[in-house]
């Protein structure tokens, strides 16, 4: 069975799909970059996890 000829509407849908894909890919890159910056900048990242963390206690005492 032969493929039906490509219609203009298929090209438009393909363009839309590419647009969404590129947008999502850029969003992932951005979230990753934000994560790297926030982690490496030394923002306080620790939280209570059932082990003794004196530095957290000191922070609370302030």
């Amino acid at each position: 069975m032969a493929f039906p000829p490509e219609h203009e509407i298929h090209r438009r849908r393909f363009g839309r799909n590419i647009g969404v894909a590129v947008t999502l890919a850029l969003f992932i890159v951005l979230v990753f970059a934000l994560t790297v910056v926030k982690v490496t900048r030394g923002d306080p990242m620790q939280a209570f996890d059932h082990s003794v963390r004196p530095e957290l206690a000191a922070e609370e005492a302030e």
Binding site: H7, I9, R12, R13, G15, V20
Partner: peptide
């Protein structure tokens, strides 16, 4: 359904959402 799709000339492209 594919043929009916051809009859919708107003379908949006990515630029229309932008």
């Amino acid at each position: 359904s594919d043929i009916r799709a051809y009859e919708q000339p107003g379908e949006a492209g990515f630029g229309d959402y932008v």
